[in-house]
Nucleic acid binder design. Structure first.
Length: 288
DNA sequence: ACCTATGTTGGATC
DNA sequence: AGATCCAACATAGG
């Protein structure tokens, strides 16, 4: 299972930097044209002979910086993956774009569900030409996600906190797994309206978001279900999921059975005892 | 075999 | 503007 939230995308970025930074594109093969913008003829023509200067990331987006002022914005969506193979090694039916490099290697994009997208834009124009990129909220780091900003945006919204945190224009990079995790860590019920959170709760939530993302990046974005197997693996730090995918299991803090509900069409895991709904929110629900 | 679930985003419809 | 639902697609599991 690949889980491309921010830490996973950052891990991909670092891997690609190590493997293909300073490589040069010989030619590009697009096997599933819907995946690329502009159309595949232009897309492939535009990339011939370009050098990969750098690979950047913003939120869950990868930005391939090519020579000559061209950037490829790539989003992995649910299941997109990059890998690098020797020229001509067998491809799977889910390999949709192949970047043939001049050094007899291939950078391949594979995506079972075909949700991923890649688009070429002039470097520096990506925020203007791609609104989803331009409107991204701050990165979840100590320096960029300030408490003042948290207090301001949460105070302005009645939206419940789970979809609020999934909104990339508020904070960039959080996905379904890490949102459930940080809400559990912060003892906040996923149905709590954003503007019901106290300053103290926002301080806790902010700290947990920043810490969780940092630790997940440090763990190479590897989120594993089993904590016991992760421990004892020599030299390997792996992340531990406290609630995601653990419905029916006892909460690690209090032993109460973890529940799974739907919130804004997304599977949502929480501990009903550690993460109680505030009385005000229960009343609001009762009025439906 | 049928129905539901799945990490994400963006568009349509109210 | 904001919420709500659904679409893109393939596969796994009950």
């Amino acid at each position: 299972m690949n889980m491309p939230e921010l830490p996973e995308v950052e891990t991909v970025r670092r891997g690609l930097t190590r493997l293909v930074k300073d490589a040069t594109i010989d030619h590009v093969e697009v096997r599933y044209p819907k995946m690329v913008t502009p159309d595949s003829d232009e897309f492939t023509a535009e990339l011939i002979g370009r050098h990969i200067d750098a690979i950047d990331r913003r939120g869950k987006y990868l930005l391939f910086r090519f020579s000559g002022g061209v950037t490829m914005v790539s989003h992995l969506r649910m299941e997109g993956k990059y890998d690098v193979q020797p020229e001509g090694s067998p491809v799977t039916k889910h390999t949709h774009v192949i970047f043939h490099l001049t050094d007899d290697r291939e950078l391949r994009y594979t995506d079972t569900r075909k949700f991923g997208r890649m688009q070429l834009v002039p470097t520096g124009e990506e925020d203007r030409l791609m609104p989803s990129l331009g409107k991204l909220g701050p990165e979840p780091t100590e320096d960029t996600l300030t408490l003042d900003y948290m207090v301001t945006i949460f105070g302005k919204s009645h939206k419940v906190v789970k979809p609020f945190l999934l909104d990339q224009t508020k904070i960039a990079g959080l996905g379904n797994i890490y949102v459930d995790e940080v809400l559990w860590l912060s003892k906040i019920n996923p149905l709590t309206p954003a503007d019901d959170l106290s300053r103290e709760q926002l301080i806790t939530l902010r700290k947990n978001i920043i810490e969780e993302i940092k630790m997940a990046i440090h763990g190479h974005g590897t989120t594993v279900h089993s904590f016991s197997t992760a421990f004892g693996e020599a030299g390997q730090f792996q992340n531990h999921l406290h609630v995601y995918g653990r419905e029916g299991e006892p909460c690690e803090r209090c032993g109460t059975i973890i529940e799974k509900i739907k919130v804004a069409q997304r599977g949502t895991h929480f501990c009903p005892k550690c993460q109680p709904l505030p009385a005000a929110a229960i009343e609001a629900l009762g009025n439906d």
